[in-house]
């Protein structure tokens, strides 16, 4: 995957969306769009040609886990890389996200280095897989 890849950042807090968008720009990813919950994100994903999804968990409307499950059950989106970026730190939730097919899990507060490391790891495993 190149730096031309298209990201969708889903979080109900606009501040967090701006933070992630800026960090992605710093990493060289210029194509970043935003959505404030799963209900807004899903139609965008179905038509937007996105290459990578970064989503929060706890959002009003459709939470991130439901969005992840919807993505994995959609034939066209099933293989989309999904990184969960959330404050949810319960073991059972992390296990649930893993079982639902998440590719990476970062807990807030996070560092720019962690975000980069997880994105790179997901992309590397995609490239080799």
């Amino acid at each position: 995957m190149s730096k031309e890849m298209k990201f969708l950042v889903v979080d109900d807090y606009s501040t967090m969306r701006r933070i992630v968008k800026n960090l992605l720009h710093d990493l060289g990813y210029a194509q970043v769009q935003e959505a404030d919950d799963g209900n807004t994100a899903l139609p965008m994903l179905k038509t937007g040609g996105f290459d990578f999804l970064i989503t929060d968990w706890n959002m009003p409307g459709m939470p991130g886990l439901d969005l992840l499950k919807a993505v994995r059950s959609d034939d066209k989106l099933a293989k989309l890389p999904v990184l969960m970026l959330t404050a949810e730190a319960k073991r059972e939730q992390i296990v649930e996200a893993a079982q639902a097919g998440v590719n990476g899990y970062v807990i807030k507060p996070f560092t720019a280095a962690t975000l980069k490391e997880k994105i790179d790891k997901i992309l590397e495993s995609r490239a080799s897989g």
Binding site: N58, A87, A89, K90, R91, I94, V95, Y105, V106, F110
Partner: peptide, 28 residues
């Protein structure tokens, strides 16, 4: 739901940091 707050006991086990998440996912 939401962030873990020190002093407020969660009813379930939580991980303390990113390393905890990575270890758990590695176990999985």
């Amino acid at each position: 739901v939401g962030p873990v707050v020190p002093g407020v006991n969660p009813q379930v086990a939580v991980v303390s940091d990113q390393q905890g998440v990575d270890d758990l996912l590695s176990d999985l």
